[in-house]
Design a protein around this nucleic acid. Structure first.
Length: 300
DNA sequence: TTACAACCGACACTTACTTCA
DNA sequence: TATGAAGTAAGTGTCGGTTGT
């Protein structure tokens, strides 16, 4: 399921693009689209060509339209082909290689013992394995070092944990997915706050504009200053606060939202700025709570 | 050099199972 | 004890990249 929301705040000259979901799409971005796509640009062509949009339009209509459509991602068909999978050509691929490599042999291992005989024969029930705390801890440690494993590392780790290589591979896949999901949630929350701030800023600017227009078309006051001095006049009339309004939220942001990230171990919000503040002498890559999912580096 | 097929790794999506409040 | 939500191991289909022919 893909979901793409674009918040188009024309007056503020800002467009926030939020892309969620995806999978099975034509483009790589769509296929890997569960990650947030953040874009903050000034003065994009209006109206925004992207379909799901929230538009806060100019003065008088003061309309706000919002549409959100979930485009069918597709991705896997889930269980639809389950009955075929074990015999299908695609299904034969990798797992069967791992099987051949000796995961059936691992049925003597502790994991298989816990799983309870791994009854491949009847195939009617899916016994679920629970990893031990020690296994999970070691996997977590390896994940902190590298979020991906090469085949040699995978086999070695599987041997060390007394698991099948396929299980290690699946664990890393699921762990990456969890990390990405948490990161998406954090980004989503940030975007939400940013959008709320921009909406408020937009309202304030519209009010200000209306006041200025009202002043411009009002009959001239005998002692009123010329129209070129409108701001002062407005201020004198007490129509706008004398103190400047606080800077909008997006201006207070010290760094782009996309650079905020979660520490893979403690899953706390982190960012280069916070990290540098915490330990200024330390190189960024070696700072706590800073994890770059794209370089697969973590340093907690 | 280009075209093609096979393979592989990663991902998105999903299901099934376990744990816990 | 029953139950629903959350967490997670695992299955499946798809895509892009690599490699051999």
């Amino acid at each position: 399921m893909a979901q793409e929301d674009v918040y188009h705040l024309d007056d503020a000259g800002l467009v926030l693009g939020l892309s969620l979901g995806g999978g099975g799409g034509a483009s790589d971005a769509a296929r890997h689209g569960t990650g947030i796509r953040l874009s903050m640009e000034t003065r994009l062509p209006s109206p925004c060509p992207l379909e799901p949009s929230l538009t806060l339009s100019m003065p008088d209509e003061a309309t706000a339209t919002a549409t959100a459509t979930g485009s069918g991602g597709g991705g896997g068909g889930g269980r639809t082909a389950h009955s075929v999978s074990s015999l299908s050509v695609a299904g034969v691929k990798r797992e069967r290689v791992d099987d051949a490599e000796g995961e059936r042999a691992s049925s003597t291992g502790a994991a298989a013992a816990r799983a309870g005989a791994e009854d491949d024969d009847d195939g009617s029930t899916r016994k679920k394995l629970r990893l031990t705390k020690e296994q999970s801890a070691l996997l977590e440690d390896r994940f902190k070092e590298h979020s991906t494993l090469n085949p040699k590392q995978k086999v070695a780790l599987a041997k060390q944990l007394n698991l099948r290589p396929r299980q290690v591979e699946v664990w890393f896949q699921n762990r990456r997915a969890r990390t990405k999901l948490r990161q998406t949630e954090v980004d989503c929350e940030l975007l939400k706050r940013c959008c709320e701030s921009l909406t408020e800023e937009n309202r304030r600017l519209q009010r200000e504009l209306q006041e200025l227009r009202a002043l411009k078309f009002a009959p001239p006051h005998p002692q009123a200053p010329p129209s070129s001095a409108a701001p002062q006049a407005v201020a004198a009339a007490g129509l706008v606060p004398t103190a400047p309004p606080p800077p909008p939220f997006y201006m207070q942001m010290q760094l782009p939202a996309a650079t905020l990230s979660l520490c893979p171990s403690c899953e706390r919000l982190a960012g280069p700025a916070a990290a540098a503040k915490a330990e200024p002498d330390r190189p960024k890559a070696a700072t706590h709570h800073f994890f770059n999912p794209f370089t697969h580096s973590a340093a907690c």
